[in-house]
Amino acid sequence: MRKLFRNSDNLYTKIPEPIKGIFEFLANVFAVLTVVGGFAYSGIKIIFGIKNPSTSGIDLTRVILIAMVAVLVMLLIRLKNIKANSLKKDQYMAQRDQCISQEYYRFLHDYRNVINQMECDYKRQNLNLKLLTDTVEHFLENALDYLTEILSTITGEKVCGCVKVIVGEGFEKISYEEAKVKTFVRSRNSQEERKSFDVRCSSGVKISDNTDFMNIVSEKRRGNDSSFYQGDLKGYAESLKKIGQKYQNSTDNWEDYYLGTIVVPIRIANKRLFYTSEEESYNILGFLCVDSLSTKAFTEEAKQRNIYLVKSYAALVYNILSKYQFYLKQLGTTSVSVVQNNIQQRNNNTYNNGKNRRRKKNRQ
């Protein structure tokens, strides 16, 4: 009976709504008729003095009727519970869908405003280095918060994110074996220790020293499916070890901060750019990364859904970073050096603010 009840949840959800209504109506009618019929039959027996033939003196009819009523009551209670659970699930799904649509709208809303505001400020000659950098950083932080909130809602696990930009070799015709990446912006829910690492790693890390990034920029992975998706990095590292390879990660003690990750390139096909004659490959500005300490966050079943969601953010982040470079050049600066200096200054400020908060807390 327990097994039947456990399986009834899945069976009930597969039944069309009209049939559910008919079934529940008939069950209710049958229960009422059984109870009323049982009392009526007992009354008739008492009035007319009818007795059941029984050697033990037990009224078998009454026992059977009571048993039937008990089973029906149990069945009705179970149906009500299943219906209540189904209603709760529908409410949860509605709230989840609202969260996803709301956060995605905010991202697109901010994107529209920022991309036009930068152009407006530039044409009105109001744009300066600080305003431009603050605008881009603020947009990217919000974008990461929106994305990680959606993923946390979908997966039920905490998800953090960051935008890493390519520095050291210029933004055009990158030599990936020599180029480096630096963390430009992190989501606000990221651990302080990770921000501290960004400060210590002031010169950036080589793309070639990171399996995630090299997996994306390698020649065989530069197609439309280019991404790095692993729900269990420890398991992935072990699988590489078995075939004589090594998983490389440029973050110290990376397993203390995340066990699953999604990394996608922030890029566009060169053929879509007017300032380059290259028709092959992609112009990659950096990487959009999300990760979680839970190995249940990024499941294989949800792989395509998760990847396309992160890629949709990366597509518009490309435009923001591209405009950022353009206006930096218009302001008479070298995009790479400014990005490096801005990242270092911002990370130092973040690190120092974090230390000051910790010192104040310790004094208290």
Rank of each mutant, 00 (worst) to 15 (best):
F274S: 12
Y282L: 12
L273T: 02
T276D: 05
Q330L: 15
L328D: 03
I320T: 11
D252S: 13
A314E: 06
T276A: 13
Y327P: 08
D291V: 00
A315S: 15
L309A: 11
Q248S: 11
G332Q: 04
T334W: 00
G244I: 10
A302P: 03
V290L: 13
R305C: 10
V338E: 01
L321E: 06
Y313P: 07
T251N: 14
E278C: 14
L240D: 08
I266V: 08
G235P: 03
S322D: 15
N253L: 13
K271A: 15
L328P: 05
F274H: 10
N319H: 13
T333R: 01
F287K: 06
I284Q: 05
V290Q: 04
S312G: 09
Y308T: 14
D252E: 11
K241Y: 04
T334R: 00
K242V: 09
E238K: 10
K323W: 09
S337Q: 01
R272M: 09
I243S: 08
K296V: 04
L328N: 10
I266Q: 07
E301R: 11
S277I: 12
K323G: 15
L273Q: 07
D291K: 01
Y308K: 09
Y324F: 14
G332H: 10
N249Y: 05
W254N: 01
I262L: 10
T251V: 11
F298R: 02
G235R: 00
Q325M: 08
V264C: 10
S250K: 04
E255N: 02
N253R: 10
S292M: 01
K323M: 11
D252W: 07
Y275M: 08
L240F: 03
V338S: 02
S239R: 09
N270C: 15
Q245G: 03
N270F: 12
L316D: 14
K329P: 05
N253W: 04
L240S: 07
Y275K: 03
G235H: 00
A315M: 14
V317R: 13
D256W: 06
R305I: 03
I268A: 14
L240K: 11
Y318S: 09
L273W: 05
A297C: 13
N306V: 08
I268P: 13
L293E: 07
V263W: 09
S337E: 02
V336M: 01
G235L: 02
S292R: 01
P265F: 06
F287I: 07
I262F: 06
Q330F: 13
D252V: 12
R272Q: 12
A315P: 12
S312C: 11
V336I: 02
E255Q: 05
E278Q: 13
V336P: 00
